[in-house]
C-alpha cells in the first residue's frame, strides 16, 4: 500500500519536472500519432460507410461519429483542466499551468466542432440550426469559458500570475460541467438524452455503437497527441534559456 503510494507520489513529482516530460513525450508522440490515426480512420470510415442506416433518421445520423466524440472530449478536457487548476493553485506546480495553457485552445476547437456538427445535424432532423435549450446553451457557455481562458492567459506578461489567474477562472467554469451533463434530464430540451449509458444497456444498437466507441477513442488519442505537442511547445517557449534545454 505504502509502496503504491510512494510510486504514485514519485510519478506526480516526475510529472512536475519539465525535462522529464519533454523527453518522455518526445519518445511517445510518434506511437500516439500512429494509433490516433488508426482509431480515427477505422472509427469514422466504419461509421460513415459501413454502419447500418438508422430506421428513423436515415443516413443523416452518421454525423454522430463526429458529433458525439467531439462533445465528449470537449467536456473531458475541461475536467482535466479543473484538476490541473487545483494542483496549480495549491502546489504551484508550473507544469499544471503549462497544461491549462496548452489544453484550452484544443478544448475550444473541439467544443466548436461539437457545436458546428450539432448544428449541421439539427437542421435536417429538428428543423433548426440552433435553439436556446439547456444542452446547447450550456455547451456554448463551455466554449465561451475556453475562449475566456485563452484570452485571460494572453493578457498577462508574467507567466506565474497568468497561471494563477487562469486557474481561478478554470475553477469557476467547472460548475458548468455537471450542468451540461444533466441538462437533458433536469429540463425539457430539444436535445435528446444520452444514448451511450454505463449503468444500463445503451439505446443504440451494437452495430452502430462499435464504430462510435472506436471513433471516440480516436478523438481522445488526438487530444492526447495535440496536448503533448502543445505542452512541448510551451515548455520550449518558457525554458529556452535553461541549461537542460540547451543541452537537449
Amino acid at each position: 500500500m505504502n509502496r503504491t503510494f510512494n510510486s504514485l507520489k514519485n510519478f506526480y513529482h516526475k510529472l512536475g519536472s519539465s525535462p522529464w516530460f519533454y523527453r518522455i513525450s518526445g519518445i511517445t508522440i510518434p506511437y500516439i500519432a500512429l494509433f490516433s490515426f488508426l482509431f480515427l480512420f477505422i472509427g469514422i470510415v466504419w461509421g460513415v460507410f459501413f454502419s447500418p442506416t438508422d430506421f428513423k433518421q436515415g443516413d443523416v445520423y452518421r454525423i454522430i461519429y463526429i458529433h458525439v466524440p467531439a462533445a465528449s472530449v470537449s467536456q473531458a478536457i475541461y475536467y482535466t483542466m479543473t484538476v490541473a487548476a487545483v494542483v496549480s493553485m495549491i502546489w504551484r506546480m508550473k507544469m499544471a499551468g503549462i497544461f491549462i495553457k496548452s489544453m484550452a485552445p484544443i478544448g475550444a476547437s473541439f467544443t466548436f466542432l461539437a457545436l458546428i456538427s450539432g448544428s449541421i445535424w439539427g437542421q435536417p432532423t429538428w428543423g433548426t440550426w440552433w435553439i436556446w435549450d439547456a444542452r446547447l446553451t450550456s455547451t456554448l457557455v463551455l466554449f465561451i469559458f475556453y475562449i475566456a481562458i485563452v484570452s485571460l492567459y494572453s493578457s498577462f506578461s508574467e507567466k506565474k500570475s497568468a497561471d494563477q489567474a487562469v486557474s481561478i477562472l478554470t475553477l469557476v467554469g467547472a460548475v458548468n460541467l455537471p450542468i451540461i451533463k444533466k441538462s437533458v434530464d433536469w429540463w425539457n430540451t430539444l436535445h435528446q438524452p444520452a444514448s451511450i449509458k454505463f449503468t444500463e444497456s445503451s439505446s443504440i444498437s451494437t452495430e452502430m455503437l462499435y464504430p462510435l466507441i472506436i471513433s471516440i477513442f480516436g478523438f481522445y488519442l488526438v487530444v492526447l497527441l495535440s496536448g503533448l505537442m502543445a505542452m512541448r511547445a510551451e515548455i520550449a517557449k518558457r525554458e529556452i534559456n535553461k541549461e537542460w534545454f540547451k543541452n537537449y
Binding site: 447500418p52 442506416t53 438508422d54 430506421f55 428513423k56 433518421q57 436515415g58 445520423y61 454522430i64 432532423t125 429538428w126 428543423g127 433548426t128 435553439i131 430539444l190 435528446q192 438524452p193 444520452a194 444514448s195 439505446s203 443504440i204 444498437s205 452495430e207 452502430m208
Partner: peptide
Amino acid sequence: FEILAKHDENYEPKEVVQ
C-alpha cells in the same frame, strides 16, 4: 408558426426494424 421535430435517443438499423 414553427414546428420542430424532437427525436429520441434510440438508434436501430433500418433493416432490423423493417
